[in-house]
C-alpha cells in the first residue's frame, strides 16, 4: 500500500473517530466528552490555519495566538454589546455567529496582512521574533485595555446563535464545529493542490528557484499568511463561544507555541496533522491531567521525543513521508 493511500485511510479513520466518540457520548449522556471533542475540533481549525503558513509556506509564525485572540474578542465584544443593548463604533452588537465569523475573519485577515507585509521579507529567527512581537502587542493591549475587562477577560453570558441550531446544546455546537473543521480541511486541501499551493510549497523549499521561474515569493507568501490568519481568527471566535469567555490569555505567547506544538505532534504540512495533533494534545491533558498534576512534564518529554526522533509527527509515523506527485 503506498503512502498516499495509507494517509487517506488514516485521515478517514481520524475523521470518523472524531465524530463517533462524541456521538457515543451523546447516547451515553457524557456532555464533558462532547465538549472535549468540540475543543479538539476548534483547536484543529486554528491549527489548520497555521498549517497554511507554517506547513505549506514554511513561515514559522510564533504569533498566531494574535488571530485566535482577535476572533475571540470579536465574538466577546459583539455578544457584550448585544447583551447590554449598546453600540460599538456606531454598530449594534450581535449574538449571531455568522456576522461574528465574517467580522472575525475580515479583521484577523487585515491584521495578518499588516503583520505579514512587515515581516515576510525577514526570515529565520527574525521572522519568528517579529511575529511574536506583534502578538505580544495584542496581548498587552487587551491586558491593559479596561473597556472589555482587561486582565479579567470578558464573559459571554449566552452562547451566540447559529441559524437552525440550538448552540447551547453541546451536541449541536459540536456538529457545527465539526462541520467548520471539515470545511477548513477542504479549503486547505484545495489550496495545497491548486497552482497557488504548488507555488507556495515551491517557495518554501527553494525561493531562488521559484523566483527564477517567475514566481514572486512575497505576494504568494503574503496571501498565504492572510488566509492563514483568517482561518485561525475564525477558530478564535468559535473558541470564545465554546468557553463563553475571552481573555488576554488567548493571545499569550504560550498559545502561539501550543498551536505550533499541535502541528508538530500531528505532522507538519499534512492535511490531518492539525486534527491529530489537537487530539493528542487535548487527550493528553484530559487523561494525564486526571492522573497527575505534573502532566505537563510528561507532555514536555513526549514533545521532545517527537522533535528529536519522530519528525513527521503522528501522520508521518503511521503513513510515511508526504508525497507531492
Amino acid at each position: 500500500m503506498d503512502n498516499a493511500r495509507k494517509e487517506w485511510l488514516l485521515n478517514t479513520a481520524i475523521a470518523l473517530a472524531l465524530f463517533a466518540v462524541p456521538l457515543w457520548a451523546l447516547l451515553a449522556d457524557e456532555p464533558f466528552i462532547i465538549t472535549t471533542a468540540t475543543r479538539i475540533a476548534i483547536l484543529a481549525i486554528a491549527a489548520v490555519g497555521l498549517n497554511i503558513a507554517l506547513g505549506l509556506g514554511g513561515m514559522v509564525s510564533f504569533g498566531h495566538a494574535l488571530y485566535l485572540g482577535i476572533g475571540g474578542y470579536v465574538a466577546g465584544i459583539a455578544a457584550h454589546h448585544a447583551f447590554s443593548g449598546t453600540t460599538v463604533l456606531g454598530l449594534p452588537g450581535t449574538n449571531q455567529m455568522l456576522p461574528i465569523w465574517a467580522i472575525a475573519m475580515i479583521l484577523s485577515g487585515t491584521i495578518a496582512g499588516i503583520v505579514g507585509a512587515l515581516s515576510i521579507r525577514t526570515s529565520g529567527i527574525f521572522f519568528i521574533m517579529i511575529t511574536l512581537a506583534f502578538a505580544q502587542m495584542g496581548f498587552f493591549f487587551t491586558l491593559s485595555w479596561p473597556a472589555y475587562g482587561g486582565e479579567d477577560g470578558l464573559p459571554i453570558f449566552v452562547r451566540n446563535q447559529f441559524p437552525g441550531l440550538n448552540t447551547a446544546r453541546p451536541w449541536e455546537f459540536f456538529l457545527l464545529s465539526y462541520g467548520v473543521l471539515l470545511a477548513a480541511l477542504a479549503i486547505f486541501a484545495m489550496l495545497r493542490a491548486a497552482r497557488f499551493g504548488a507555488a507556495l510549497m515551491a517557495i518554501r523549499q527553494n525561493p531562488d528557484r521559484a523566483a527564477a521561474v517567475g514566481i514572486s515569493p512575497f505576494g504568494i507568501k503574503l496571501v498565504a499568511f492572510i488566509l492563514s490568519g483568517m482561518i485561525t481568527g475564525l477558530a478564535g471566535a468559535m473558541m470564545a463561544d465554546l468557553t463563553r469567555f475571552v481573555s488576554p490569555a488567548m493571545m499569550a505567547w504560550t498559545m502561539s507555541g501550543e498551536l505550533i506544538v499541535i502541528i508538530i505532534l500531528g505532522g507538519v504540512g499534512r492535511l490531518f496533522g492539525p486534527v491529530a495533533g489537537a487530539a493528542i494534545l487535548v487527550c493528553f491533558e484530559v487523561l494525564f491531567g486526571g492522573l497527575t498534576e505534573h502532566w505537563k512534564l510528561w507532555l514536555g518529554l513526549v514533545l521532545l521525543a517527537v522533535v528529536l526522533f519522530a519528525r513527521g509527527g503522528l501522520i508521518g509515523l503511521l503513513a510515511g513521508r508526504a508525497q507531492h506527485g
Binding site: 497557488f196 531562488d208 528557484r209
Partner: peptide
C-alpha cells in the same frame, strides 16, 4: 537548484504554470 520534494514532472509544471500566468489560482 530545483524543488527537491517535487518530481521532475512537477518541477517542469511549476515553470509552465509560472509562464502561463500568475499563480493566484486557488
Amino acid at each position: 537548484s530545483l524543488i527537491p520534494d517535487y518530481s521532475a514532472l512537477r518541477n517542469v509544471m511549476l515553470a509552465l504554470q509560472a509562464r502561463q500566468g500568475h499563480s493566484y489560482r486557488f
